[in-house]
Amino acid sequence: MSWTKDQPIVSIKNVHKSFGSLEVLKGVSLDVMKGEVICIIGPSGSGKSTLIRCINALNDIQDGSITVEGQEVHDPNLDQLELRKKVGMVFQQYNLFPHKTALQNIMMAPVLVLKQDKAEVEARARVLIKKVRLEGKEDSYPGELSGGQQQRVAIARSLAMNPDVMLFDEVTAALDPETVKEVLVTIKELAAEGMTCVLVTHEMGFAREVADHIYFTDRGVIVEHGPPATFFDDAKDPRTVEFLGQIL
């Protein structure tokens, strides 16, 4: 792999994806540069979540190509572990392991998957807990934490693998309005540190604030994209205008 940092870290080219006879992605292309934050927005059912799930091979694709650091994701001979070391993912429903404490949730993958030293991982996990502002919750089980707290544990759990790219799939959609902010603050800090982030979100204000680039998808295609200022204030496509009119 001859990937260099001036090339896109994630490159999606003409991706087609169907569930049975239903075509969800109809030729989607986009590039993400290292350190960039991109937001994918659009009406529900437009294929945004499917698209980012394809990036770490949770969904397969029928046609096109997705590369992460030059590595083809949908190569049948792909080393899935190599890919998943590079790409972290946070889900709408947090998906923490309910039988493990917050600290154990964060530590498990580095210890089991990366075979790293337990003491060293624990030290790192405690730093991450602090980073997501959950000091004192190390030994709490997910069931004892609020949605916002669980989501921050999930973010820390992904970060513990030291990924190069983070995928966020509507991570605030299941949260109470008052806890949305604490999660967004965490993501904003990550973005400010230079983490490459791909977010699917409904938080337009947040997208406008943190994103370097916005993509608007509808019915399986990217209708319009651009930097937040142009995108939000100067949308061209009637579908974008209609969507923004409905939610802003």
Binding site: Q80, R84, M89, N95, F97, M108, A109, V113
Partner: peptide
Amino acid sequence: PKSTQEAASALGYTRLQIYRY
């Protein structure tokens, strides 16, 4: 839930590790 297993899978767990842990 399938989604819990998916989260483990996204963290690089093998099928066997997902089953066991």
